[in-house]
Amino acid sequence: MNIQTRIANNGVNVKALLEAREALTEAPEAARFQWRARCDWVNGTHSHARVERFFGLGEEQQHKQCFAYDCDHPELFAAEDKGATPVEYLLVGLAGCLTAGIASVAQNRNIQLRSVQATLEGDMDLQGILGIDTDVRNGFDNISVVFDIDADASEDEIKALVAQSQKRSAVFDALANPTHIQVQAR
């Protein structure tokens, strides 16, 4: 097999991404995006969230369909468990972001992926959210992500995919670094 001429196909349109990058370098205002979600309380700790619209490239945009998510808590929290726990959505977001990054970087580096599986664990001490110990933070005190990747690449090349996907990940950045948040009632 001639390695030099092999073309990987991970289903990522890298050419379009690189063209978008070039276009947004020329027009930085079009690169300002806004992501949105709406959420309605249902009952108890159960809520129903939807994402449909967002803003980018200078105008309103829309997903091909409205995506809906139920948020709740497990029964041991005396809840009805009608959906994933909100913190689990954070793990889902991180997994989706890093996995998309791995596929894109692999495509750009001409590495054929056969399987990519992420296992995520977020550690949390409930003494924080229950207000038992004010020295314990509410959120995760650690998140671990383990990728099992089967690809036509060396061990270091696979490690480099994982490292590069973190470097360019929006959710990794949002979790690893502080973010200004305004929450208000109107």
Partner: peptide, 11 residues
């Protein structure tokens, strides 16, 4: 401080 120390060292 950022939580990305592991990754920048790995890179």
């Amino acid at each position: 401080f950022s939580g990305s120390l592991n990754n920048v060292c790995e890179l």
